[in-house]
């Protein structure tokens, strides 16, 4: 812990005077302690107050693991070994479980990918939202219920007082996602983490759900951490973009900067895939390396057409090359 504490500020800390959330040097690993497999390799992230940060990366890049680490709900057998997660002046890594529990759902909340599956099938959705509300605010049962119905109404659920008494399996994907958003907002958190909130929804429903997230998060004044593999979703929703690859942060900066003038060859590849030149199906050759197979070099070197011996030998440090725009690449 001591090594981590000496460098507890992220290089990204300069993005704002006092970021709401700041992750620095976070290492998350699994497997036996003697031969650990690193899932997050000293990842960095900063979320200014009220900002919308999009984390983009392929599946397996560690996006969701970062979300779990922030909330302190890593899966069994996975542990955070080093690093700090500063949130609103506290280090979440060293916070006792009781206080951490108050933060979960109260100050930081989660909208997960499969909304129906993320709700307890045996309880009405209203009861579940009200339960989270009571757990963190201690209001009366009746008050919690009133707030729940009001919020469902505000999120565009028709007949909210009837729907609150329905069970999760009665909801369509889009409606269930609204319920999940209501649960995430009921305690007025400072940070909402949305982990692939629209993956698996129809395109039209996807747009509606994004609009609900957009409007409700704006209205609540919370910051948003939007995790997605879909660059188009990130582009539509976020003002800051973080590009992660194989457990490392490769690029971080303002959305129009990163998306229009990307510095990392990986980001450039992702953008080409989203928006390929006429008559071309763009892809990045190769696949994301399995956790635990990476050496000391740049994690993307294997798939990068500009990779040199230097790239393969040493992982480049995050450097601020433009205002508020960081990249981890030897070439820039």
């Amino acid at each position: 812990m001591s090594a981590a504490q000496t460098q507890s500020r992220s290089v990204l800390a300069g993005i704002a005077d006092d970021p709401l959330l700041e992750i620095s040097g976070l290492v998350v690993e699994t497997g036996p302690a003697r031969r650990p497999i690193e899932l997050l390799r000293s990842i960095e992230l900063a979320i200014p107050k009220g900002a919308r940060v999009g984390v983009v990366g392929e599946s397996g890049s560690g996006k969701s693991m970062t979300a779990s680490a922030i909330l302190g709900v890593l899966p069994n057998g996975v542990r955070a070994r080093a690093g700090t997660i500063r949130f609103d002046g506290r280090d979440l890594m060293t916070l006792p479980e009781r206080e951490m529990r108050r933060i979960r759902g109260g100050e930081i909340s989660l909208v997960s990918q499969n909304a129906v599956a993320s709700l307890n099938p045996l309880m009405t959705v209203g009861a579940q939202i009200a339960k989270v509300c009571r757990e963190h605010t201690g209001v009366s049962k009746q008050e919690a219920w009133t707030r729940t119905v009001e919020l469902l109404d505000a999120l565009g659920i028709p007949e909210p007082d009837v729907r609150a008494r329905s069970y999760p399996h009665h909801f369509s994907g889009g409606m269930a996602q609204r319920v999940a958003i209501a649960m995430a907002l009921i305690c007025s958190p400072q940070l909402v983490i949305a982990d692939e909130p629209t993956t698996g929804l129809d395109a039209t429903i996807q747009a509606q759900v994004l609009e609900v997230i957009d409007g409700s998060v704006k209205a609540s004044g919370a910051a948003l951490l939007l995790i997605s593999h879909d660059l188009a979703v990130i582009r539509a929703m976020c003002d800051i973009v973080a590009v992660v690859y194989a457990g490392s942060l490769l690029e971080y900066g303002p959305a129009d900067e990163v998306l229009n003038r990307p510095l990392s060859p990986y980001t450039q590849g992702l953008i080409r895939c989203m928006d390929p030149p006429e008559g071309e199906i763009a892809f990045i050759p190769g696949r994301i390396p399995e956790p635990g197979t990476l050496g000391a070099g740049c994690p993307f070197a294997e798939r990068c057409d500009r990779a040199t011996d230097a790239c393969r030998a040493q992982q480049p440090a995050l450097r601020q090359l433009r205002p508020d725009h960081w990249v981890s690449c030897h070439h820039e």
């Binding site: 899966p75 108050r102 979960r104 109260g106 997960s112 709700l119 757990e135 963190h136």
Partner: peptide, 9 residues
Amino acid sequence: RSARAFGLP
């Protein structure tokens, strides 16, 4: 997982 992530005891 989600119940834990919402801070339920």
